[in-house]
């Protein structure tokens, strides 16, 4: 039942899967990790992006990755708008806002789910592309191309976003806003504008991430629930706002899921990320590497 080959297989798949998980968590790492927005709707936006990709692929035979790129600007605008609304109604009001902010995003996630159900039904949907369905054999290990594509794009995406945050003026401003809003104001930048842009970027990235999601496996309207666990587990484990950490944490989760899947079967898989998240939160209520003391 258990062999070294099987374990090796699980680890390799887990690493690839992990990189993919990292890519879908990047946005949350910015919006929740850096900006402190309680973005429970992040996974719902992710699934929404997958359905947009599915729509383009199904009706116009657009390659999923190209479709992902195409919807990115729309998601950018969506992100800008959502942050504006969130800021005007919650952040500005202060104290009691966090409770309602959480409820707000929970409600948004719920609306997205239902709209998808009304539009596409509850059945699973998948995309077609040349690299889906085939596998690459490496010795005894069989690696599906779809995972490899996801892995490659995910890694590239993480690197791009890291470069953006560290090398561009706006990127540095985004990181500064997480550290010290006042200092940024003194430098003549408007922290609200910076945060809005950051949230926009975080949402835009979901365009590609959503494409990866539906490339890796078929999606259904309530898939976002499972990804609440995965994305938050990763972002919290990584230490809020650390993109490099996000990738490492994602790989840890990917490998853990893959091993549990191999040893105990698929029925336990949904609980892995949530159990890890609970464990981390219980030990460190502020997350594994709390940004502030």
């Amino acid at each position: 039942m258990f062999s070294l080959d099987l374990l090796l297989d699980a680890v390799v798949i887990g690493v690839l899967l992990g990189c993919f998980y990292g890519a879908v968590s990047l946005g949350l790492s910015v919006s929740f990790g850096l900006l402190d927005v309680p973005h429970v709707a992040h996974p719902a936006f992710l699934v929404l992006a997958s359905y947009a990709v599915y729509f383009l692929n199904e009706n116009y035979a657009v390659d999923p990755l190209v479709a992902g790129l195409l919807i990115t600007p729309i998601f950018l605008l969506l992100g800008l708008a959502v942050y504006r609304l969130y800021y005007e109604t919650f952040e500005k009001r202060g104290s009691d806002a966090s409770v309602r902010g959480i409820a707000f995003f929970f409600g948004i996630a719920f609306i997205i789910e239902v709209v998808i159900i009304l539009q596409f039904g509850v059945d699973q949907r998948s995309v077609t592309a040349t690299y889906i369905g085939k596998a690459w054999r490496l010795g005894d290990i069989r690696i599906p191309y779809r995972l490899l594509v996801a892995f490659a794009v995910a890694t590239a995406l993480t690197m791009l976003l890291t470069l953006y945050l560290s090398r561009t003026f706006m990127g540095r401003a985004i990181r500064a806003v997480a550290q010290d809003q006042e200092a940024l104001r003194l430098m003549g930048a408007n922290p609200i504008k910076v945060k809005q842009w950051a949230f926009g970027i975080a949402t835009a990235v979901l365009g590609i991430a959503g494409a990866l999601l539906i490339i890796v496996a078929p999606v259904d309207p309530t898939l976002d629930r499972a990804y609440i666990g995965r994305t938050f587990c990763i972002v919290v484990m990584a230490g809020l706002g650390s993109l490099g950490g996000t990738l490492v944490a994602a790989i840890i989760l990917g490998v853990a899921e893959s091993i549990v899947l191999t040893l105990f079967g698929a029925s336990w898989a949904p609980a892995i990320s949530f159990a890890m998240l609970l464990g981390i939160l219980a030990v460190r209520p502020q997350g594994l590497f709390g940004r502030r003391s």
């Binding site: 309680p38 159990a275 609970l278 939160l281």
Partner: peptide, 23 residues
Amino acid sequence: LTLRMQGIFFSIATIALTIVIET
């Protein structure tokens, strides 16, 4: 387990608990 957590961490933890028990 969770009440020392603030705001969103508590909320997320309660979802996590739900899924773990359901599983």
